[in-house]
Simulated assay, not measured.
Amino acid sequence: MKNTAISPFVRLQSELASFAKARDWEQFHNPKNLVMALSGEVGELAELFQWLTPEQAADFPQEKKEALAHELADIQLYLLRIAEKCNIDLEEACDKKLVLNNEKYPVDKCYGRAVKYNEL
């Protein structure tokens, strides 16, 4: 029996499309512009971590968690919008990439090592 439940990605993409259409923003939502906007959001995320020590980053300050959640959401929403505009099923792409990463990074070769697959 096929699962007919709507994917959270598809639901969010539909809501994003409606949001943009209601504001006449579709004219601006081409892949290039969306990637540029995504880059800005990643910069805002990086700014939250910029001067934290590794220990502080691992135990992110509670008073900044809402800002962190907003930046992560902005990034996810832009990724979903870019995927939609480029006709990429992001959920399927993530599933395939996980399989590929498992092949490229076998546990017995990369365990405890922070190197690229071609250096294993």
Rank of each mutant, 00 (worst) to 15 (best):
E26W: 05
Q27P: 11
F28P: 08
F28M: 14
F28I: 10
H29E: 09
H29G: 08
H29A: 05
P31T: 04
P31C: 14
K32Y: 02
K32S: 00
L34T: 05
L34V: 05
V35E: 09
V35R: 14
V35I: 04
V35P: 01
A37T: 01
A37Y: 00
L38D: 01
L38Q: 10
S39G: 11
S39H: 10
G40A: 06
E41N: 02
E41A: 01
V42Q: 06
G43H: 12
E44F: 01
E44Y: 01
A46Y: 06
A46N: 13
E47S: 13
E47M: 10
E47K: 08
L48R: 06
F49L: 08
F49K: 14
F49E: 15
F49T: 12
W51V: 11
L52T: 01
T53D: 03
T53M: 11
P54H: 13
P54R: 14
E55P: 10
E55Y: 14
A57E: 08
A57D: 06
A57S: 05
D59S: 01
D59Q: 01
F60K: 05
F60V: 03
F60M: 09
P61L: 11
P61I: 07
P61K: 15
P61C: 15
P61N: 08
K64L: 07
K64G: 03
K64E: 06
K64P: 02
K65N: 07
K65A: 01
K65T: 03
E66V: 02
A67Y: 12
A67M: 15
L68Q: 07
L68E: 09
L68K: 07
A69Y: 10
H70G: 03
E71H: 11
E71Q: 08
E71C: 13
L72K: 15
A73H: 14
D74L: 09
D74T: 04
D74K: 02
I75C: 14
Q76T: 03
Q76E: 14
Q76P: 05
L77H: 04
Y78G: 00
Y78D: 09
L79E: 10
L79N: 11
L80E: 11
L80H: 03
L80R: 06
R81I: 09
R81C: 10
I82S: 00
A83I: 02
A83S: 07
A83Y: 03
